[in-house]
Nucleic acid binder design. Sequence first.
DNA 1: CTAGGGTTAG
Length: 788
Amino acid sequence: MANAGDRVICGVAESHHYISLLQTSLKIKDPFSTKSIHAQIIKSGLHLGLFVVNNLINVYAKLGYTSDASKVFDELPVKNISSWNTILSAYTRGGMISEAVSFFNKMPDRDSVSWTTMIVSYNRSGFWDDALRLFSKMVSSQVLPNQYTFTNVLGSCGAIRELDVGKMVHSFVIKLGFVDNVAVANSLLNMYAKSRSANAAKMVFESIPLKDVSSWNGMISLHMQSGEVDLALTLFEQMKERDIVSWNLLITGCNQHGFDVKALEIFSTMLKDTKIIPDRYALASALSACASTKNVSVGRQIHGHIVRTSFNTSGAVGNALICMYSRCGCVENAHRIVIQTGRSNLNVIAFTALLDGYVKLGDINPARQIFDSLAERDVVVWTAMLVGYVQNGSHNEAMALFRLMMIRDGEKPNSYTLAAILSSISSLASLNHGKQIHAVAIRILEASPASLDNALINMYAKAGNILYAKKIFSLSHQRKDAISWTSMIIALAQHGLAKEAIHLFENMLECDSKPDHITYVGVFSACTHAGLVEDGRRYYKMMQEVHDIVPTSSHCACMIDLLGRAGLLHEALEFIEKMPVEPDAIAWGSLLAACKIHKNAELAKVAAENLLKIDPDNGGAYSALANAYSACGRWREAAGVRKSMKLKQVKKEQGFSWIQIKNEVHAFGVEDGLHPQRDAIYQLMEKIWKEIKKMGYIPDTDSVLHDLDPELKEQILKHHSEKLAIAFGLLNTPENATLRIMKNLRVCNDCHSAIKFISKLVNREIILRDATRFHHFQGGVCSCRDYW
DNA sequence: CTAGGGTTAG
């Protein structure tokens, strides 16, 4: 047993002995050996000095034995600032910020380590402002920052793009002589890079005397952030050594900028040419690249690697796998990974991708099941579900979901949500709902993006309010895109404002906005509605020669329509025979419709036969052919067609019309006897009928089967669904109010003529949206000038 | 006792 004097002399050696023991116990994470060392230290008395005891406290703290650490600290008769700092760091490491703050305030003295520990703690929790505030307090308390302080404070500046503060810190760094410290210099570089000061960042980089891998990585990151992928790649080539971060910067950068093939190339080079093992960032980005390029086979290989190395699929990697399989259409695989990984380890983004995968396959029900199973929903997943319904044509479900989102869940929609619901509203042509959404958009969005304006234009146009559509278009002048022009051109064309539509198209060309294939559909339909055959031909040529657009079947259908309606039936047939794509049902249907208008039964027969060859169940073909025969007075043949229709049980779409009064939609079929107001409606129609006949209206009884009693013929015409809807509208709206009627089929000749008279008789504007376009009736005339 | 570079997925 050594005496007291020996102990003092041996102190230093003994200290080293205990410290190395403590470090080993920390390294192997063995709390029991720590306890036994602790016992030995007590046994030998606390003469070893604070250095050893502080070390003991630290090891306890780092192993998570906070109460043991505190106990040793509390029992210390004499403490130095390092003892206090050690406990402080124990609190901050455990994320106990409020405890750390009150401990920090209790400290008798604070040095740069104490302050820095607090700053680091704030940074770790993302409280960048608090970190900077504490830094300025530190400086005014006359405590000098060290290199650790600077790296962290510069990190805070970069995170919140506080360039001005960052510059001040920079001058401080220079003053205290830390510029040559590579860690501090790298932090400066990154601060400037994040604050979008590329030149300052480059200057810092050039001035670093001993650049390390991180310095180079910082520059690569800078270039990737600015989208200069080539420069980033060049720098990467120049590097003498590269680490996983260098590789990941390239992989994620290429992925983010759409160079997904390159990203996968780099990923495979890393696997092949280096010993670097891909981490979760590399795997997630590579999988994302597979998703974007729909490269399942590489995606499966990466999945295989993940399985072989039993890589943890919780979090980023699992989410990326699910997204990859969903976007590649392998929804079952994605679903399997959800089950294997466990729902709680995955996030809403992965589930949104899965939901979307089902939507893309047209499986709306499983998509809804996933949606319902989510514990937490954000605005994006609500929107994805909504878009699913819209694309599926389930507009009522879309409306119901939107209500659920707004009212029951209180989720705030964004511009994508609003554009999606507007698309449903457009299909339902519900002006009231559309106006409500417009109001929501004005209330909650700071600025309306072009996409939303376009949805609004579309909605107002489809709901019959062309004036509002024009207003939105003219107000969105700063952020107009090609789709805005297209939406407006189509809107004008649908409303029969063909000259305006074409004028707008010319404007669009002058503004150097590039029309696409849809723009041209709008242009052709405008030409058709106005009978502008020559313009139509010219634009058809321009589309191919100037804008390099290959005509699609819809363009051809428009052209056939244009020629046919103008009476150039043989030219239309010639067009079909020479058109660049295989003639489809719509092409022959257009010709057939034209034959009906121009009473050409021979050609109608050719068109109908061809149409039925392609689409044998097309009820429209039969009735169009029958109508064409009727129109030429060939009753027997017309009856023959109708008979064969019955024989073949071909269904003809039932015509109906609807009108919205307040928030309710009232639908009417032909001879609708079910409506509660039927007597009043029929009486009013009777009265109107007499009045308009006095004004010169002649019922188009030729369009009805010929072998009926004339009285009965009139009766049938009188009770067409659009006329009933108008009578109902007149009964239930204030005087002078505009009536907006929708019809699922095209308006018939007789109704078109009758409504003109009605508009004059009751002095109302009547807007009728039929299957293809709008008719604005006012003062006895229609906006289509009887050409439709 | 305190620290610097890369953070994916709808």
